[in-house]
């Protein structure tokens, strides 16, 4: 479904990614892990048209999307949840979700119901300002907003960042729920062990280049990967 080949990308003159290859199949759950500064988030932003494209291809469902603007990429069926500041804090929960479907003429009631089904607390708190909710709940708002267009692929940039440790597990559960409903997930995570345990396939990125690629479980079991990136 998503096929990234030989991607060179960065910000302005600064190149961050070198010849990166990556693939996500229909309904697949893929994570990208690696040390800080490896360019994990940049991969995600490049797919979503937020970086300077310097070479290579990004194909989504057979359509070349590199160099397109985010508002266009969204219409192809990709949703993106940024790492920080990912809710409109002065808007209500419901308004946040409505904004997720801005490109449609009307708020899709079925999508809204689906989000409320997945995250019932959002329905309960729909009139509350998003900024007044807890970190875990804000993460739900952010995910819900990205799901309003019922994307085929959801990009999640370090969803566990800033969450209290006891909430991280819940967060991973929610990603499972989304994936099990048929949405493919491409996730960048610093919590590498847990992410690899949960996903179908994983990539290890080092200094902007592909290093390893395999089943999550295989990567977890790999001596080299364990020693170099998972702290033993």
């Amino acid at each position: 479904m998503l096929r990234v080949e030989g991607l060179d990308a960065g910000y302005g003159d600064l190149q961050v990614l070198y010849d990166v290859d990556l693939e996500v199949g229909n309904g697949e759950y893929v994570t990208v892990v690696g040390p800080n500064g490896a360019g994990k988030s940049t991969v995600m932003k490049s797919v979503f048209g937020l970086t300077t494209h310097m070479g290579g291809t990004v194909e989504f469902q057979g359509v070349e999307i590199s160099g397109r603007r985010p508002e266009e990429i969204i219409t192809h069926g990709i949703g993106y949840v940024p790492q920080n500041d990912n809710v409109f804090s002065s808007l209500t929960v419901r308004e946040n979700l409505e904004m997720g479907a801005y490109i449609l003429d009307e708020v899709p009631q079925d999508a809204l119901e689906a989000v409320f089904d997945r995250f019932p607390i959002l329905e309960e708190r729909q009139d509350q300002k998003a900024g007044s909710m807890s970190g875990g709940q804000q993460q739900m708002v952010a995910m819900g907003r990205a799901l309003m267009l019922d994307p085929d692929l959801l990009l999640l940039d370090e969803p566990s960042a800033g969450l209290a440790p006891d909430l991280v597990e819940d967060m991973f559960d929610r990603v499972d729920v989304v994936n099990e409903a048929g949405t493919a997930v491409l996730m960048v995570e610093q919590n590498a062990k847990e992410a690899l345990r949960r996903c179908d396939r994983g990539y290890v990125l080092v200094q902007g280049r592909n290093r390893y690629e395999d089943d999550g479980e295989t990567l977890l079991a790999d001596e080299q990967v364990r020693r170099d990136f998972l702290g033993g």
Binding site: E71, S89, I103
Partner: peptide
């Protein structure tokens, strides 16, 4: 007004 970058990735023109 709240978050311009997020508005962009949300698809708000």
């Amino acid at each position: 007004a709240d978050n311009r970058d997020l508005a962009l990735v949300t698809g708000i023109p």
